[in-house]
Design a binder for these strands. Structure first.
Length: 476
DNA sequence: CGTCACACCCACACACCAC
DNA sequence: GGTGGTGTGTGGGTGTGAC
């Protein structure tokens, strides 16, 4: 079996089971398999233009998801998620965010009736004061909500013994249900009311209608939104009404038979023609409306890991509400302006599916609690880990990267290997280790390997890469 | 002159395939 | 099992023209 031609995570398991039987490594392998599945799912979802899952999918997925999670604790008597905010300076913030979410709660930014957790000397974030984070552990240990009064750290407006966290959360959640914009200072409730009823629905209802469920990640874009205003000829964005088998259109087939440069010319010319006939005419008055901004934000909240994806915005641009803007424009709009208004996103599971509470409502969490996007940048620490592994290895063979992957599964085997292939020269390993340790010892932040490796990288590079090396060599 | 919408660019993380 | 080649598309920009 080729190590890098996995079709699914089971092949990872097969590999690891065959070659490494130790318990610790098996556990690691399971994690890697899961991680790999997750990342593959993300990439495949993007490739299929899957922007959000439909309610039926979510119902199915929710059951599967919830079978593996602890019973909910941080829920109100009527089953809604209690909402907490944890101060960003809290050293164990990430750990407790996970605990809260895992047990049915939600972590959001400070706001009315949000239970604030943090240090004693911190500024109070909630109207009830700030409570010790131990409250969470104790509740989990007891399997139920404890009285919160003993956990008060600093009080602001009310006596802690007046507070029943479940009641506070209930009233707050009711407000949330009635006022979906309570978290969005820029978009007031009054502004929302100015929207047409249908528009409001598009903002707050699930994007897609039920589809025949024969695959968990079947795209369901066509269901609610009309066909794109123009035929998308790009193989990257097949029209939703077309079969997913990617039938080759005559034009595409013709392109496939052309030399690459000619294909590029045709592609550029055709896309330019499309753009010029569809969108540039409106440019002078084509401002984004508040409704469109909120629509974009809501789609991003539902698909937080795709927030930088070109294809994600490509698909958004085919939707009726945004059909007067291009993918580039929508993406630019988010990156330039809207990302500063993305105060929360919706909780997703490991397969990027929305997680709902008992009432079928999406759970709001902070963007920092979702994790990264689709790609992880190599850090200086990653490069150091890589160089250490290479140094310890007698030969740079596949097992070096598979070991790296098992110990550091945030990059795939291929990624570790590719990093080595493209950034590490023969003499770089010792040099970078020395450089990194020296920087760390003096309290400085080391640069990533890319800039160091250019000094000695002995690869058979293209002329362009050689030029780049020359530049780097001069600049270092 | 600043802002906006939009087009375009490119390095590289990640993947797949052939051998 | 291991390697080299290469495709895809993300992530993070910059450039340009209209207003």
């Amino acid at each position: 079996m080729s190590y890098n031609s996995y079709d699914n995570g089971e092949q990872y398991d097969a590999f690891f089971d065959a070659g490494h039987s130790e318990h610790v490594e098996q556990t690691a392998a399971q994690k890697q398999s899961h991680y790999n599945m997750t990342r593959r799912t993300q990439m495949e979802a993007v490739s299929r233009n899957q922007i959000a899952t439909n309610p039926q999918d979510l119902t199915t997925g929710r059951h599967r998801y919830q079978t593996n999670i602890p019973p909910p604790i941080f829920v109100t008597p009527d089953g809604r998620s209690m909402r907490f905010t944890i101060q960003h300076g809290e050293p164990r913030r990430a750990e407790f965010v996970q605990k809260i979410i895992t047990h049915g709660g939600a972590v959001i930014e400070p706001g009315k009736d949000v239970i604030s957790l943090g240090q004693q000397d911190a500024i109070s974030l909630g109207q009830h004061g700030v409570f010790s984070i131990d409250f969470i552990d104790d509740c989990i240990e007891q399997g139920q909500i404890s009285a919160i009064a003993p956990y008060i750290n600093c009080n602001t407006e009310e006596e802690p013994n007046l507070i029943d966290p479940r009641i506070a959360a209930t009233s707050q959640q009711s407000n949330l249900s009635d006022d979906p914009n309570s978290q969005i200072p820029e978009l007031t409730a009054a502004q929302l009311q100015q929207l047409e009823p249908q528009q409001q629905e598009s903002v707050h209802e699930p994007l897609f209608q039920p589809q025949p469920l024969h695959h968990h990640y079947e795209p369901a874009i066509e269901a609610e939104f009309p066909p794109p205003r123009q035929q998308q000829s790009s193989p990257l964005t097949p029209p939703p009404q077309q079969n997913q088998q990617h039938e080759i259109q005559p034009q595409q087939q013709q392109q496939n038979e052309m030399p690459v440069q000619e294909q590029e010319l045709v592609s550029t010319a055709s896309s330019s023609a499309q753009k010029s006939t569809t969108k540039t005419a409106k440019k002078s008055t084509n401002r984004f409306t508040e409704e469109q901004d909120e629509f974009i934000l809501e789609r991003i909240r539902e698909n937080p890991r795709l927030r930088n994806s070109h294809k994600f915005y490509d698909t958004l641009a085919t939707m009726e509400i945004l059909n007067n803007h291009t993918q580039n424009s929508i993406r630019s709009r988010y990156r330039r302006l809207l990302q500063h208004r993305l105060y929360y996103v919706y909780k997703i599971d490991d397969f990027d599916r929305l997680v709902y509470d008992k009432h079928g409502e999406k759970i709001k969490v902070g963007i920092e609690d979702i994790g990264g996007t689709l790609k992880n940048k190599f850090t200086a620490e990653d490069d150091y880990i890589l160089c250490k592994a290479l140094k310890d290895a007698k030969r740079v063979v596949y097992s070096v990267f598979s070991d790296l992957y098992r110990k550091n599964p945030h990059h795939s085997i291929n990624s570790w290997r590719d990093r080595y292939r493209k950034f590490v020269g023969d003499g770089d390993i010792e040099a970078y280790i020395t450089y990194y340790e020296k920087k760390i010892s003096v309290g400085e932040t080391p640069e990533g390997l890319s800039r160091v490796v250019a000094i000695t990288k002995p690869k058979k590079n293209s002329s362009k890469e050689v030029d780049a090396e020359e530049e780097s060599r001069e600049s270092v």
